[in-house]
Design a protein around this nucleic acid. Structure first.
Lengths: 396, 396
DNA sequence: TAAACTTTGTTCATTAAATAGACAAACAAA
DNA sequence: TTTGTTTGTCTATTTAATGAACAAAGTTTA
């Protein structure tokens, strides 16, 4: 059954417009909102007064006048509640607490190796409790928890598959809901990252963007027509298994020449291993160490990065031809090696000389670096809270 | 400025719901609409009476009763207007006239070779005039014209690039608007096809589908979240230039190993040529002739098709991993060779054994075959007419 | 300094459209 | 014939936006 039109819907739409106006353009007066949004002054007045009751906004003295009564300044009350975003990696967990504006208030990170499902869940619960405790007093408290996961998540918050974690059908949302009686949101980590850079990236906001999460594997988050595209069952963005070399290396997915066999952290580390690059204690080498070697001018390592960059570029070009996005953002751990990846990528992008697309494509590297994913999750939660809040206000 | 909520919007939404209900579920009564849509009986009554005034629907006697007053049957008046859809190919032009239900009333096709821009436009105008003349009398007459073009179309109906036609920056919409004072819509041919199969394909409707237009080149139309994705500048779906073999053949786009070098009509014809397959008059061979040869058991030709099928499948798998759609539909001219393509494609799709996706993917071959594109264009026009019509009704 | 004009924000009567409920008409089953 | 059901219309009510009036609080001009 489709949502029918009625007065409630009208009010929800308008209240949402007013709130968005204040969020994006504060400090702003009632009169200015009325003008910008095309809403009647009376309508704005009454909606603003409701938002004040909800504690979502606040008044803040008088503004400047240009020949008339001074306007009352309205501000978004970004401390009306706090949101928790967690990025679960393969061997780390990063959690942040943000206010409603997305500003980070508290941050925690832990590392681990090969932990069991139960152990990871326990650590996650601990982290959530710690972050909750760090939240200042506020009218709404913690408004929800969002978790980004390196795997396939369905629409009900079940982690169907996270190969690098060894997870299979984990009802993560349910588990957390049982522990914390708060709204919970589980998303694929690349989707979370895409949302994060869309909202908080320094670049101007664009309608269509691709966030490439180049970490252990390669994933992509797609913002299309201004909203996150999740695919039918959440499988979208399994782009690491796009074939770019039909007769290439065998992948465990059954095909040959998958992208992530050439352009991921794992691919680089394996190459490094086959070159005999190890730490003194014959432990597997890490990306951090490789970056250090490259900094010291190790040409073997540098060409390793350049090789990966070339393949990264090929995949990006494929995506650009498919989506014609305004922006491509490369994020996650490989950004560490940006210095050596970027020249190769830029060069390959020029290779497609057919004229279309390339001139308007902005390829950037995430400023948020490893924070894109948790910030995106926190933003999801915030967004949902603000939207739902608008419906519930009781009119007197 | 965002669209604000007000009574007009509410009415537009509800009227659109009622009309859609009648379009999709006719014959249907007012009472049934009220129930299904969750709208009040009075609301439905009044909106239905407006739609009757608009001539968009009609009453048609009494239905069966199950122990009460007999319901009045409502029907969609699919002859309230007619829509023109044109598919401009590289060496043919196909035009159809449909009623508002999408049923084909008149059809015209012409072939040509290497015509100038002006000559093509003239032929198009002729075709439009002929189709218009063939439309029966109706309250609204011709409600608009839609043209599908094998190239890149921007949001203003300019054909930016159509390499196979030799077109460059042709303001097609403007040209047609000047000639016919009717709503005009120009779209990429694959986008049009995607819309066509979404609406009129025999399969049940799905939210996310990919329409692969395998013709001279390879294009794709993407229906995501139930609506057509056009990309930032209309460049989307230039998927023929997705690289599937990084060290493969050189493409004129500047990259190597592009998909359409292996899986298009052009690719097949070129292979055929290099095998020495020509017609008696040493003219270039056509796809139709190749299909005939294959029918006669020519193993060389059959393996040609199978080779193309293999590469078609690789590209499709890439798209499936990227989009996780519910359905993939293969359309346009290569469907002629379905008999030899299908087994190879089906087999390759099994190859990805990682478990995700494959079980729920429905790969089908367009029933509309070469009609998908013009039918999609006509449907676009119809859709737009029906949506806009709802706003304009004057209330008494 | 007073008068004139501007801008802001609130209030109130009006209007549009959905809704609940009443009601008559039309029908089937008991 | 009676009873109960379904349909479609009509009316009073409710919700929320709108236009206009207005007071308050400014700035600019004479």
């Amino acid at each position: 059954m489709p949502e029918t039109g009625n007065q409630k819907l009208v009010k929800k739409i308008n209240k949402s417009i007013v709130l968005r106006m204040i969020r994006n353009h504060a400090p702003i007066s009632r009169a200015a909102i009325s003008q910008k949004a095309g809403l009647n002054r009376g309508t704005v007045s009454s909606l603003v007064s409701e938002l004040l009751d909800d504690k979502l906004i606040s008044e803040s003295g008088m503004g400047e006048s240009r020949g008339g009564r001074k306007p009352v300044i309205l501000l978004f009350n970004h401390r009306a509640g706090y949101s928790i975003g967690i990025d679960l990696g393969v061997n780390y967990m990063l959690g942040i607490l943000t206010d409603l504006k997305g500003q980070i208030v508290e941050k925690q990170k832990i590392s681990f190796h090969q932990l069991s499902l139960e152990a990871i869940i326990d650590k996650m619960k601990d982290m959530i409790r710690n972050l909750s405790a760090a939240a200042p007093d506020s009218p709404n408290g913690i408004v929800g928890i969002g978790v980004g996961v390196p795997g396939i998540v369905d629409h009900d918050g079940n982690v169907l598959l996270a190969p690098n974690l060894g997870w299979n059908n984990v009802p993560l949302k349910e588990i957390l809901e049982r522990e914390f009686s708060l709204p919970i949101l589980i998303e694929n980590e690349a989707n979370a990252g895409a949302y994060g850079v869309k909202l908080y990236g320094t670049e101007e906001i664009r309608e269509n963007l691709i966030y490439i999460s180049a970490g252990i594997g390669v994933g992509a988050g797609l913002i299309l027509n201004d909203s996150l595209y999740r695919g039918t069952k959440g499988y979208s963005g399994e782009i690491g298994h796009m074939v770019i070399d039909v007769d290439g290396k065998q992948c465990r997915c059954g095909r040959k020449g998958c992208w992530e066999l050439y352009a991921s952290e794992q691919a680089i580390l394996e190459e490094a291993r086959s070159l005999g690059l190890e730490t003194s204690k014959s432990q597997p080498i890490t990306l951090e160490q490789l970056v250090e070697h490259a900094e010291n001018g190790d040409s073997k390592v540098i060409s390793l990065f350049e090789h990966a960059g070339k393949y990264l570029a090929e995949g990006i070009l494929n995506l650009v031809n498919t989506f014609n996005p305004e922006q491509v953002i490369i994020g996650n751990r490989l950004v560490m090696a940006r210095k050596w990846l970027e020249p190769v990528i830029t060069e390959r992008l020029q290779a497609q000389t057919m004229g279309f697309n390339q001139e308007d494509i902005h390829v950037t590297y995430s400023q948020l670096s490893t924070h894109a994913s948790p910030m995106g999750m926190a933003a999801f939660i915030t967004q949902r809270f603000l939207e739902n809040g608008l419906e519930q206000t009781v009119t007197n």
